[in-house]
């Protein structure tokens, strides 16, 4: 097992290299480069000032030199300073990670708790009413723009019923609350964002676990289990479900980029100070160092997600471990 993980880690190195290279290229597609953005607001910026800025960011050097300088600093987790407020990019990102991670972990939990039973039930009762209803739900879930759903729920729960807050992660008067009240306040703020970010995932995963379960149920060992007289629930949960679960584990890793990326829209709608919202405000103000930092970190988080998925797949399915030796 350790050798399997080590092999997977080694494979990540060229990928990280490629990720940084693409990020670098994307940013340098900008006409005039980053300096133009900082000076375009003030017409007074003289040619001399531009040259100084260029020197400051090392933009007067050839591109490949710039790339290697950037990647060496990046290896030390130094992404430079934000154009907007001069703070270190890494600090700005790190303070945003906990809230984004919390929302993603909570919504992943919600996705698994709701989607897997739906998928298993509709597979074991293929073509039943439940299966048909859940299939319709899945297609609607796939096709609903989450930000629209967010708007509708904000109108319903926030504006019309006044039950839930529609922005931020805590009330303004939070400092005057006791710990329990504070927790309740926090939960109230998170219900809509977590529910909405889980919505699309529930549709996807229930579909996936349904087809995974359908495949397993047709196998010979299930027929054997039935033939030797096991009752149906034992067949489903002991024999079929555990085998169907294996490919589902990989979905966990594959859903990471979608969840992180999807955060841009709903964090912006709900004014949640997470990575997505930071990324949005950075793109609006063309804060290149922050954009580059988040792009790279987002991609690396995705790789880590994939790694976790592969390793847990290998843990539950011995065939993978044996094959990789």
């Amino acid at each position: 097992m350790p050798s399997y993980i080590a092999k997977r880690l080694l494979l990540m190195i060229p990928l990280i290299f490629g990720i940084t290279l693409i990020t670098f290229i994307v940013i340098h597609l900008a006409p005039g480069g980053p300096v133009e953005v900082q000076t375009e607001m003030s017409l007074k910026a003289s040619a001399q000032a531009r040259e100084n800025l260029k020197k400051l960011y090392g933009l007067d050097k050839p591109l490949h030199v710039q790339y290697f300088e950037w990647i060496t600093r990046f290896a030390k987790l130094d992404f430079g300073k934000s154009f907007v407020d001069g703070r270190k990019v890494i600090d700005k990102i790190v303070e945003r990670i906990p809230i984004t991670l919390t929302i993603n972990v909570l919504s992943l939990l919600l996705i698994f708790i709701i989607a897997i039973p739906i998928g298993v039930l509709s597979a074991t009762r293929q073509y039943s009413l439940f299966d048909k209803v859940s299939t319709v739900f899945v297609f609607i879930g796939f096709s609903t723009p989450t930000f629209w759903l967010a708007l509708l729920l904000m109108i319903l729960f926030g504006v019309n019923l006044g039950l839930l807050p529609i922005s931020g992660i805590q009330s303004i008067d939070v400092s005057g609350m006791g710990p329990l009240e504070r927790l309740a306040d926090w939960v109230k703020h998170l219900i809509l964002p977590v529910g909405i970010s889980a919505f699309g995932g529930i549709a996807g995963l229930s579909r996936y676990s349904r087809s995974s379960m359908l495949e397993v149920i047709r196998q010979d060992y299930i027929r054997t289990a039935r033939a030797k007289g096991l009752n149906e629930s034992e067949v489903v949960f002991k024999h079929a479900f555990r085998n169907a679960l294996m490919p589902i584990v990989t979905i966990l890793g594959l859903s990471v980029p979608g969840l992180i990326g999807g955060g841009v829209i709903f964090e912006t709608i709900f004014a949640i100070p997470g990575m997505g919202q930071l990324f949005y405000s950075s793109t609006m103000s063309r804060d290149y160092p922050t954009i580059m930092g988040i792009l790279v970190i987002g991609a690396i988080l995705t790789l880590v997600g994939n790694l976790i998925a592969d390793v847990s797949y290998a843990l539950v399915d011995p065939r993978i471990r044996v094959k990789s030796r």
């Binding site: 990928l15 990720i19 693409i22 990020t23 994307v26 940013i27 980029p257 979608g258 992180i260 990326g261 999807g262 841009v264 829209i265 990324f279 949005y280 793109t283 954009i291 988040i294 792009l295 987002g298 991609a299 690396i300 995705t302 790789l303 994939n306």
Partner: peptide, 11 residues
């Protein structure tokens, strides 16, 4: 595939 697509598009 490693880039969150929406981030890349926004950038």
């Amino acid at each position: 595939l490693a880039f969150p697509t929406f981030f890349l598009i926004l950038a």
